[in-house]
Amino acid sequence: MDRAIYRLRNLKERFTEVLYRDRNYAAQVLNHSTVPFALLYVSIPEIEAYNLYEKLNHRNKYAYDFCSEIAGGSSNFKQEKSPREKEIIRWIFRSGIVYDGLDSRFDRIIDVAAAVLIRQFNDLTILKPAIDIVFRRNKKGSFNHDLIWAVFSAHRPEVLKFIAEYLLSPDVRDRQLACRLLNIGFDNGQDNRTAYKKFISWLNENIKYINVGDFCQQLTSNPATYEVSLENKYLCKSVSNNLVTVDEEEKIRQFANLDDETKQMLCNYSNRLYRANRAQWRKWISLPLYRQIESTRRGGYE
């Protein structure tokens, strides 16, 4: 048995002993700030049997209602988007992931907590631990589709970076999953470091211009996860910046009519020049499109 789950069983036994002696004190134990969510979760049958709900603090009542809501039963759960509720869901997730694999309902609560934090509270601090859980479950052969969907729904390129770290794993299952999620071919014979360096170098060059989409395994066997916005890369403008000037709008319009090869050539050159010499780039980008193409084909703008 997993060590954390073994410790939890011990904690639960001690809690039950306290409960038999003193119901009020047992509620105080559950309300303690250091108690992990998993203890509250495994104590739900006792909370119900000993009518402890009213003695729980706000954190525990909210977490209890959250669990009931996910279980699909009648619940008092009211979704709120306040910092207080965010902290509680973060507690469920952060203190809960240690016990991932406890049972399937518990894992579902962890997945939902992650999805709520990412999709409703825009909490990006949990992306890394959520991705770690995805890989841990993959090795155990347990269900991870909902958690993968949740992390990609952040639509952030950091997700790709965290996943790419698993390209370095000595475990082939990690590398296989990382390749699938990153939509890159898996080659068991390939040196881990080379694959990682190649991907990270590409990511660093394009990170500002990447649109990360949903990873919907319900829709397709090969979900398209991310793509570089060539328009943004050409203008050297981050995808997070939605403000477009009239001049930029016109440039995008003309750029859109080009063939794919010319688009790629222009955006690569624009990006290189932007990083090497900002003043030169400003002059280049202000040229008419045909002159930009000419100068790029010649091998550079002087």
């Binding site: 809501e69 996910i70 997945d111 939902v112 999805a115 709520v116 990412i118 999709r119 409703q120 909902d146 969907w149 949740a150 949903d214 919907c216 319900q218 829709l219």
Partner: peptide
């Protein structure tokens, strides 16, 4: 987010 199975 509580019903990811209904994402579609």
């Amino acid at each position: 987010p509580k019903t990811p199975e209904l994402q579609g």
